[in-house]
Write a protein that binds this DNA or RNA. Structure first.
Lengths: 223, 223
DNA sequence: GAGGAAGTCACCCATTTGGGTGATGCTTCA
DNA sequence: TGAAGCATCACCCAAATGGGTGACTTCCTC
């Protein structure tokens, strides 16, 4: 049982020597390959759409950008990659930002390099590795958010979403039918109009939502 | 560096043989002492105020009592003890219940006994040990609770995981990409496979979810 | 009464999608 | 060892989709 392909890793870390240490560690046994290392978060974000990696290892200690902003950028561009935060910061806001942005794990730099290695493995396996203190924080935050959310809520499903406001009622109606799996001809039959009319409506939906097909439109509707 | 006092552990577990196994494991190296083992949750709760232990190891598979009820009882009586859930159940509701009730960690029984041992150590050290799949769930729940601070309904929350469990990881991955508006060729490029392969995966997704096209599949995913 | 948004319909054309069938290699598990 | 599941690829073909352009009506508003 050998590993034909090392997992590709991209790092973002402003400390050059730590970057080097990480690279050495990760590549030591051929399990990972650090294909690119960024020091400058802006460069990183600019290159983001062109990057390809299974694992992103990020220090969110960024001068200007917020952590959540950065992480969610990465997540949006690379929905299937694993994103691990590796930083010295452990504020509630930072941790919450990271996970809400879509991070898979959060490690503190006082973690041993051995543990960093293990954490990456766990993330790739589908886990959510965290340093012990971070894990407790997450659990606590979970409880806090829950408490906040339970009181002032009329429990309305018909909450006027962004999508609903943007589209006309006809367009919204059609989008709903799309999400149920109806094809153009099905919708046309249900609404007693022609397929061309349905097409026109759907074209308008795409323009307004800035999407390119049914799947993305439905995702927007239900997001 | 010897251990003068083993940590006291109390277990609640209705499978007698598993209880025995746990006891043997934990006491093997003198690090822990299982001071009491309960089979019956009612007896356990009745005795609760009289119990003394540093660690509670609980199976929340209880016939009558809800998990959160049980855990929060223990937490109220023993605010400084460590509470670990060790069970086969991994529903969103169960996990949420456990942590909101005050659990420190959550392990699935398919975890190796070795890992159970490590998890207890981590809990005692102040961590929040979780099985990998549980950790991911917690992170996801965190995001969901934040998104709609309004409707933290366990029924609702457990819905997306149905899809996630039904599909293979590859299929799930592809479905995610579909929801982002990617076409077959886009997905093929990102995953480094041919378009035909993507088609095959998508056909399987449709069969498993009983849907007929991208839009309906994405709707099911995001339900 | 002009202008604009919304809803309706039509035609053309290329691309995408879905469905069928079949096949290979690799694990896992009984 | 054999079955089953998974991931991969291929070929064929019909249906569905998307993009472009243009046009007609109604209703509302300025």
């Amino acid at each position: 049982m050998e590993k034909p392909k090392p997992l590709s890793v991209i790092t973002l870390e402003d400390d050059a020597s730590y970057t080097e240490t990480l690279k050495l560690l990760l590549e030591a046994n051929g399990q990972y390959q650090v294909v690119q290392s960024f020091r400058n978060p802006v460069h990183f974000l600019c290159q983001l759409p062109n990057l390809v990696a299974e694992v992103f290892l990020l220090d969110v200690n960024l001068p200007k950008l917020s952590g959540v902003q950065c992480v969610s950028e990465v997540r949006r561009e690379h929905p299937t990659s694993r994103i691990l935060i590796l930083t010295v910061h452990d504020s509630d806001a930072m941790v919450l930002d990271a996970f809400l942005g879509g991070a898979d794990g959060y490690l503190l730099k006082d973690e041993s390099l051995e543990n960093v290695h293990l954490a990456i493995q766990e993330a790739v396996r589908g886990g959510a590795p965290m340093s012990a203190s971070i894990a407790r924080k997450v659990v606590r935050l979970l409880g806090q958010l829950k408490d906040q959310g339970s009181s002032p809520d009329p429990q309305e499903l018909s909450e006027p979403s962004v999508v609903e406001k943007l589209l006309t009622s006809r367009e919204y109606e059609i989008l709903i039918l799309l999400s149920k799996g109806d094809r153009y001809k099905d919708i046309a039959a249900k609404l007693h109009v022609t397929v061309d009319t349905v097409k026109t409506h759907i074209r308008h939906i795409y323009e307004k939502l800035h999407v390119r097909n049914k799947a993305e439109a439905v995702a927007r509707l239900l997001s």
